[in-house]
């Protein structure tokens, strides 16, 4: 049943996906409103799906599909939060495709893909997953914002008058969205990694720093920290911030992909 709701959510997110592609070429007030409503409806279905999962008692914390679904939900929550504060749907250009992809993968089949290793400290594991996913979602939004920043900067510098009536919010607003998500995401990411370490230590007795998952996660965290620091210290934004954000984002994806190489963080069906 939970899967069914998730598929409903997926259908709604599909509209968001279409919006993401259309918004890049032209501005339509109506369509962005439609996409917003579809996304909200999708979130309701998604929430029902997640709640049902938790209530059914079948929740498997370390299932990849449940994780993807949860991450997608956090990303959407961020998107909505931004909409509420800034009244712009433009981050959807980046958020919607990612959310759609995650939900799609999560909604495909019921085959549980589980952590191969039995974990005894369930509470820590749940905390790890929640925290790290909020961190991921914030990172995604920040990355998206830096892309939009570049886009808007280019339009302003190109001096085409059409650029004045674009779907993008003002440059400083985009910048603020990116910076605030970065700041918000950092503690979550840090705590997420710490709780992950706790889980690893309690399961394996030690932290294997040479394991690709841990190495890449650490790398991602370092890049994240550099981003926050350069921004705070010398106000890096625009191109440089975008490069860093892309770097952190790629590191995050690679860290995710490392699940397939890692010995301690491996999933199998």
């Amino acid at each position: 049943m939970s899967l069914l709701w998730l598929r409903f959510a997926l259908a709604c997110y599909f509209i968001g996906l279409v919006y993401a592609f259309v918004a890049l070429s032209r501005t339509s007030e109506l369509f962005s409103r439609v996409a917003l409503h579809a996304a909200s409806l999708g979130m309701v279905f998604h929430f029902v799906s997640l709640t049902e999962l938790f209530l059914s008692g079948h929740v498997v914390w370390a299932s990849v599909h449940n994780g993807e679904s949860l991450l997608a939900f956090f990303c959407m929550s961020f998107f909505m939060l931004i909409y509420v504060i800034y009244h712009t749907t433009s981050p959807g250009v980046v958020v919607f495709p990612v959310v759609f992809f995650l939900t799609f993968v999560a909604a495909v089949d019921e085959q549980p893909v589980l952590l191969t290793q039995y974990v005894s400290s369930k509470g820590w594991l749940a905390a790890h997953i929640f925290l790290i996913f909020i961190g991921y979602a914030a990172l995604l939004v920040s990355f998206g914002a830096s892309l939009l920043y570049l886009l808007q900067e280019r339009r302003l510098k190109a001096k085409k008058s059409a650029s004045l009536i674009s779907f993008l919010p003002a440059l400083e607003v985009i910048d603020q969205i990116g910076y605030r998500s970065l700041l918000l995401g950092f503690p979550f990411m840090t705590l997420g990694l710490l709780t992950g370490s706790v889980v690893a230590i309690s399961t394996y007795g030690r932290l294997d720093f040479l394991d690709p998952k841990i190495l890449l996660s650490l790398l991602m965290w370092v890049v994240y920290m550099v981003m926050v620091f350069t921004r705070w210290n010398s106000g890096w934004r625009g191109r440089r911030a975008a490069v860093l954000a892309s770097f952190a984002f790629v590191a995050a994806i690679v860290a995710w992909a490392a699940n397939y190489f890692s010995t301690i963080h491996r999933f199998a069906s």
Binding site: Q152, L156, S163, L164, I165, P169, A170, L171, E172, V173
Partner: peptide, 19 residues
Amino acid sequence: SSSVSIASVAVELAKKIFG
């Protein structure tokens, strides 16, 4: 809806940059 004087275009641009 669009600005048709230099001064108002300047304001519009400034708003596109600073919000």
